[in-house]
């Protein structure tokens, strides 16, 4: 464990250094990541006002709270591994990882965390600014916040595991983009980004319950907003645990099969 901490620390430091080289690119990416929730927030606030003040159980202040927290949750749980893995495999860069006595996922997790720490400098002030602009209906309870942090931590890991598995599909297809696009679109609907899930039709809600997206994004958001009953919270954590385990097992399996394929055909 101590060894892993030291290795993670080294990965973290070098990733931070590397990403610091791409400040401008990072800022541009951040703009789109911030704009997305603001656009949906504006749309839904307009709809709510046109409908006489609310949509379902959401008032404009509820939407504001929802999208500000969602922006933070999505920022802290997203990953980009599936966009780079086919490059790693095609260019043979993966060979460098395979020659090292450590599983390559550790470097990716550390890199992701480094990015999140670096972008926190932008995302927190933005959230604060939105807080004053949109006057969200958000009460702070220390207990809720503690449970939220736990849900956020699990969400990060389960999402990372699932997306890393998705990245490994590149072992079998040379271009991953089509699959990534499908994952992105599904996620837009089913993780609660385009609209809070309880505003979606029943059939889509059932689908959202069965897939991981909701548990990785919408669940921590709704939890923080105090919109969930104790039973729903328990159910949410159960689903997170299931997907965390499923993601973990999927990685083992896909990685083993993928490396077997890679070592059969080379890069």
């Amino acid at each position: 464990m101590k060894h892993y901490t030291a290795t993670y620390w080294a990965f973290f430091k070098t990733s931070l250094l590397e990403q610091f080289q791409y400040r401008a690119a990072m800022a541009i990416w951040m703009i789109s990541r911030i704009l997305e929730p603001i656009i949906y927030l504006t749309v839904w606030t307009t709809v709510a006002q046109a409908r006489g003040g609310s949509v379902g159980s959401y008032s404009p202040a509820d939407f504001a709270a929802y999208y500000i927290v969602l922006m933070l949750v999505n920022q802290f749980t997203f990953s980009w591994v599936m966009h780079i893995y086919d490059f790693r495999i095609r260019q043979g860069e993966l060979s460098n990882f395979l020659l090292k006595p450590i599983h390559p996922i550790h470097a990716d997790i550390a890199e992701n965390i480094a990015y999140k720490v670096l972008t926190a400098i932008i995302i927190f002030p933005t959230a604060l600014l939105l807080f004053f602009l949109f006057d969200p209906n958000l009460a702070f309870h220390i207990q809720t916040f503690a449970v939220f942090l736990l849900a956020l931590g699990i969400a990060f890991l389960m999402r990372f595991f699932i997306e890393w598995t998705l990245a490994l599909v590149a072992f079998w297809t040379t271009r991953n983009e089509a699959i990534n696009q499908m994952y992105f679109t599904l996620g837009l609907f089913l993780s609660g980004r385009i609209a809070p899930i309880d505003l979606l039709p029943g059939a889509i809600q059932t689908l959202a319950d069965a897939l991981p997206f909701r548990w990785a994004v919408a669940f921590p958001v709704e939890l923080m907003l105090g919109r969930l009953s104790q039973e729903q919270i328990l159910n949410g954590f159960t689903m997170q645990a299931v997907w965390l385990l499923a993601g973990f097992l999927l990685i083992q399996l896909t990685w083993r099969l993928g490396v077997k394929k890679y070592s059969a055909v080379g890069s």
């Binding site: 070098t14 590397e18 460098n96």
Partner: peptide, 23 residues
Amino acid sequence: QRNQLMWDIPVADSFERNRAIYR
């Protein structure tokens, strides 16, 4: 024809990474 060093950071930092990997 391949490289393992990280392109954008000083050599010493890439070395440090290997130090940690190989413990």
